[in-house]
Computed example of a mutant assay.
Amino acid sequence: MKLSETYRQIKIEAERTVSSRRAQQLKKLALGQNFNDGWIAKAILLGLLSVIAFLYVKPILYMISTGLKSVEDLIDPVVGLIPRELHFSNYADALRGLHYWEAFANTLTIALFGSLLQVFSCALTGYALARLKFPGKNLFFFLILVTFLIPPQITIVPLYMVFNKLGWLNTPFVFLIPALLGQGMRGALFIIIFRQFFLSQPKSLEEAAKIDGASLFRLFFRIMLPLAGAACLVVFLFSFIWYWNMHFEASMFLSKDFTPLSLRLSALETELMGNKAINYSADVGKDPVSEGPKMAAAFLIILPPLIVYFIAQRWFTEGIERTGLVE
């Protein structure tokens, strides 16, 4: 009897131990070693990220959906994001109304060459402020910070007068020349990014190059600038997007002839009203019939920057980390 009772107690204790271990394993899987390692935390995080992603993607989905809707689907409140039939004529109207390929070439000229010039000039200026010693360096850096803090609306009238006297209005020179001089779109911010990057590099690289007889310009172009590839990519992408989307500066300096896509979008309504292929109805709301071509035009404008970002997103993320913008 005693042996059987002892065996029974041992069996009960073993079952309790096994169940306790299973409970601990399930608890570890659910909560993790740390709280953020478990299934529960991952599920909550995934849910939050899904909601945030939907909030960002929803306007683009609405834009695409509206651009594919017919007049009947636009008027019918029952139709949601999915139209009854795909209406691709809105994109054809948007291409005609925007004069898309001409405006695309103008926008690409400003965004691409402006970004490249700005990368070169801001990298050179940032390196000088980080590594070189010259009189008034702190004053120059202070003035760069001032240009970053002053709103562009304050300096737009003096710039307009200067560009008018130089004969640069309605030409890409109003953006390319300032970019070459390091004061293009958000130029001060890019100078600060390069300055901080070059300050983080070891001085032993420059000392070794100087011992080998490298000149200052060779030191910059052969050693320091290749090391700043991540910073160059970040500055290029930021600059490209800002040049592509700019409207206020373009409306002041490029009011006719050389007009980018942002200005053509503002004038799309007039272009569409002159297009007899589009049937307008003034009796239904606030001109809902034109919403299809407008949304199609907006999607055609944001599509090139989206493609550029999807191609370069991995290197862009690495560049953000290496330049310290996330700190």
Rank of each mutant, 00 (worst) to 15 (best):
T317F: 11
P178R: 03
M246I: 09
D93K: 09
K58D: 10
C122K: 03
A214H: 11
I211A: 11
A103R: 15
R222M: 11
V289L: 12
R264A: 03
I311M: 15
S50C: 09
R264N: 10
G97P: 00
P202T: 05
L205Q: 04
M295S: 04
V57L: 15
I40S: 06
N90E: 08
Q9C: 03
R131V: 10
P152C: 04
E13L: 15
W168R: 01
I10C: 13
T259L: 04
R131P: 01
I311W: 13
A296C: 11
F221L: 14
E85K: 02
L29K: 12
S65L: 07
G229M: 08
K69N: 09
R218L: 13
A30H: 04
G324R: 06
A231C: 12
I52R: 00
V57E: 10
L26A: 14
K11Q: 14
K2L: 14
A23L: 11
L189N: 07
I64S: 07
P178Q: 03
V162L: 12
L205A: 07
A282G: 09
I241Q: 10
S89F: 09
G136A: 09
A312H: 02
N138D: 14
G38V: 01
A250Q: 06
L139I: 14
V162M: 11
I301L: 13
N34A: 02
P304I: 09
I177L: 11
I241E: 07
L95P: 00
S200M: 08
L303S: 12
K28E: 14
F198V: 02
W39P: 00
Q24V: 02
E291W: 09
R186W: 04
F236N: 03
D93G: 00
I320H: 04
T147F: 11
L95M: 12
F141R: 00
T66M: 12
I12F: 08
G229D: 06
L199S: 14
L31D: 01
I302W: 05
A230W: 09
S70K: 03
I311T: 15
A105S: 12
I301C: 10
Y243V: 07
L306H: 03
G274D: 12
E327Y: 06
T147G: 10
W242R: 05
I193S: 04
F198P: 02
T125D: 02
L189G: 14
S200H: 07
L108M: 14
F220C: 03
A111N: 07
F310E: 06
F140C: 09
D257C: 01
I301E: 02
L233G: 07
L225I: 07
A250L: 05
S266M: 10
A188V: 03
L55F: 15
L268V: 05
H99D: 08
N106P: 04
P151G: 10
F248M: 13
V289K: 08
V308T: 11
F299Y: 09
K256E: 15
F173D: 04
Q196S: 15
L139Q: 06
R314F: 09
D287K: 02
A41P: 00
G187H: 06
A94L: 03
R16F: 10
F299A: 07
V119N: 05
S200Y: 05
L159K: 08
T171R: 05
